[in-house]
Design a protein around this nucleic acid. Structure first.
Length: 317
DNA sequence: TTGTGTTTTATTGCCTCC
DNA sequence: GGAGGCAATAAAACACAA
């Protein structure tokens, strides 16, 4: 307990005569306590406002100021006043504060020798210097926290802006995914319907042949069931069927892979443009690879393992 | 002048270190 | 156990609007 054990400046001084020394007078701090006649000679800061300078003590009877506020220097010392004036705080002079600030800038911790030296130079008690440094450190810490808060807040705002941008982009992509998924679903339905009709009429092979022929001649097919796939998977940025699987399937006559997609058909489909420009090809794996027919039409299981899929597509629409 | 909010000085109690 | 630091707080000094 510093205040209680060391020396309570204000309370002690109120009981002292100007040229008396406090109870701790045996310390080398004695020289700090000046009488009114000696205070001004040893330090430029031992002005009338110094707590340990008694040169400016108020004298007149009825004066409400204690010697802690020696604003005028008509010092007719009346020692009785010291015993009866209420204890009051006083502020350090501008010069004292500037000196302390400069010292604080050099080092915000106060070693004992430095404290003594500063006290002597400023005409203050070492205790006052210590208190000033303590309070100054507290103020510095508060300011530092405000700075830290501001910089963290700026960081937060930047991150939040980025996050909001990503959210908007995600929503946009979600909408595209939904739109294109719906399109794929409808075309697959159409494909299934056409194949069913062909099979039931026994025209499967002739139909395939005629459609391939018409496609290869660039005439286009009004019932091109491959266009759904080509819209989705065949673009300049999407992998062509170079894995051998599709071409092999074509050779086997698998009805799911009847036609090699035609670029001429693709180029006329505006939906395909979306898939080219907005959607990475890996977002649309082959439907048969992901068990498309078993999935709800708006499901987003694009070939990821179930858990991973859930993690990636945790957002819903 | 006065009420009110802010700043500064100082105290108190607790904690850590040697 | 004493010295010193810190957080919380009190209180005086100060600033300023009404």
């Amino acid at each position: 307990m510093v205040g209680g054990t060391v020396f309570s400046a204000a309370s002690s001084l109120t009981t002292l005569l100007p040229n008396q020394t406090p109870a701790s007078a045996s310390q080398p701090l004695d020289s700090i306590f000046h009488s009114s006649s000696s205070s001004s000679s040893s330090s430029p800061f031992l002005g009338s406002r110094s707590i340990v300078s008694f040169g400016g003590v108020q004298g007149g009877k009825g004066c409400k100021e204690s010697f802690f506020l020696p604003y005028d220097d008509n010092g007719d010392e009346d020692t009785d006043e010291y015993f009866h004036q209420p204890e009051k705080k006083r502020r350090l002079s501008v010069e004292q504060v500037q000196f302390l600030e400069k010292s604080f800038d050099e080092e915000n911790k106060l070693e004992p020798e430095r404290k003594i030296r500063l006290a002597k130079e400023l005409g203050l008690q070492p205790r006052q210097v210590a208190i000033w440094f303590q309070n100054r450190r507290a103020r510095w810490k508060t300011k530092q926290m405000e700075k830290d808060y501001d910089s963290l807040h700026a960081c937060y705002n930047d991150l939040k802006a980025s996050y909001d941008d990503l959210l908007r982009e995600k929503d946009k992509l979600q909408a595209e995914v939904a739109k294109l998924s719906e399109k794929v679903f409808e075309r697959e339905k159409l494909e299934e319907g056409n194949l069913y009709r062909a099979e039931t009429k026994g025209f499967q092979e002739p139909l395939q042949k005629s459609m391939i022929d018409s496609a290869s001649e660039g005439e286009g097919s009004k019932v091109d069931i491959s266009s759904a796939k080509s819209d989705m998977f065949d673009s300049s940025e999407s992998p062509r069927y170079t894995d051998g699987v599709h071409s092999a399937l074509l050779e086997t006559g698998d009805s799911s892979y009847v036609f090699e997609p035609d670029q001429s058909d693709v180029s006329q489909d505006e939906g395909d443009n979306l898939s080219k420009t907005l959607l990475p090809h890996y977002m649309f794996p082959k439907l048969e690879d992901v068990g498309y027919s078993d999935q709800p039409h708006n499901s987003c299981h694009f070939g990821f393992p179930e858990e991973e899929d859930q993690a990636i597509w945790s957002w819903s629409y």
